[in-house]
Nucleic acid binder design. Sequence first.
DNA 1: CGAGTTCTTGAGCTAATTCAATTTGTGTGG
DNA 2: CCACACAAATTGAATTAGCTCAAGAACTCG
Lengths: 229, 229
Amino acid sequence: MAMNKLPKLNLRDRAVLMKTPLISGLAPSVQARMLELAMPGTFAARGIIFREGTEAEHLYCILSGYVRLFRLGRDGREADIRICGPGDVFAECMLTMGPRHRYSAQAAENVTVARFDLQKMRMLVEREKEVARALMQVTANNLLSTMECVANDRLQTAPQRVAHYLLANCPPEGSEISIRLPFQKSLLAGKLGLAPEALSRAFSTLKPAGVTVRGRLIQIHDVSALKQI
Amino acid sequence: MAMNKLPKLNLRDRAVLMKTPLISGLAPSVQARMLELAMPGTFAARGIIFREGTEAEHLYCILSGYVRLFRLGRDGREADIRICGPGDVFAECMLTMGPRHRYSAQAAENVTVARFDLQKMRMLVEREKEVARALMQVTANNLLSTMECVANDRLQTAPQRVAHYLLANCPPEGSEISIRLPFQKSLLAGKLGLAPEALSRAFSTLKPAGVTVRGRLIQIHDVSALKQI
DNA sequence: CGAGTTCTTGAGCTAATTCAATTTGTGTGG
DNA sequence: CCACACAAATTGAATTAGCTCAAGAACTCG
């Protein structure tokens, strides 16, 4: 057994990683193998994690913070494809569809991740059915939510998208609810496929429906009214 | 070995299925197992294959024809999420993310498919790593193209989307090329997230760039000019 | 408290949708 | 094989949603 000089996750990060959908469902022995492979990564706000076109080396599981997956347009404009938060896995497609990234990833704020070397993961997937199953699950989940994103882009207006987001991220109880946005509004705008101004206007549109915005705090005075939008 | 009363694929369909990415990479013995499970399905033009909200029973691999995956809006409008053609697999997410379909599937024309019972597939995936790998590959592929779809929707105009589609579906040779659309224009419009009228106008816009349309036949007089759009 | 960033609001503009009418294409039966 | 009938595609006109640009307000953090 060769001595492993690679950097390891600290205890705190380990604990977070264990709670992750990628890992939590595995048998303890397999979890241990995954922890073996996990390398820590930290990125400052706005730090680039990888760029589209470059060769993929890792798959990532977020431990804290939010990450923006986006693509560059010919004219330099950027379009967000997906916003990932704690527990989310990204670049998992590079296991089979490499070698080059099809999109860029950027830390939207200070971010810590667990990185898994793709080569080693391929070997582990080959040996451990459970890991294959977990990855399949994660990928299928990502696919379904991306498909839903396409559908929402195509048949919802801006206020509808916002209402949909709020309803999807609020406790199902009660009629009066308040939500704290986990990230900046500009990031939410990107996630919903809107310019920041359009998000602002969408919130204004929802005000008559009982939505109050103050900073990151959003109050919904009547949940059922929002569902009608 | 119990006598199997299930309908089987005919020889022709078997041959087509074997060429499919889902099957072609497998070892012969595993291919045989897959063929065992494959049940034939035919759908008339406009026939509904399954509806969103219903319980998923199969995953599908298309043998001939095109299938429209779409979602219903609250107001009854429909938005296409993906257009699948021969060799494509759909509803594969239902292996792990069931039990209910998140979108509907409709035959855009006469269609033949191979259906695989989800229960049996789950067992086969458990036994045969190769099948798991093939499905992982298919799903990752679907995820990447769906992500690209989101990006294209968000940063390309209608003429750009059409140009992109044409360039992605033409032989890379020469500067003068003609393409035969494999399906109706209304379907292409849906695939690109456009109303049929918008597709028509996009083609008009491309006429100065050397694109001629007559029925399903499209002539591109200057490929490199199209790339500038 | 103050400086920088993020967010909001306004005005003008553009892309794409909707609705309606015409043309073209396709398939069927005489 | 042609004519007819239905479906699909195109074109025009009006409308709408969202974008861009620019300025002002609010929030955040040191």
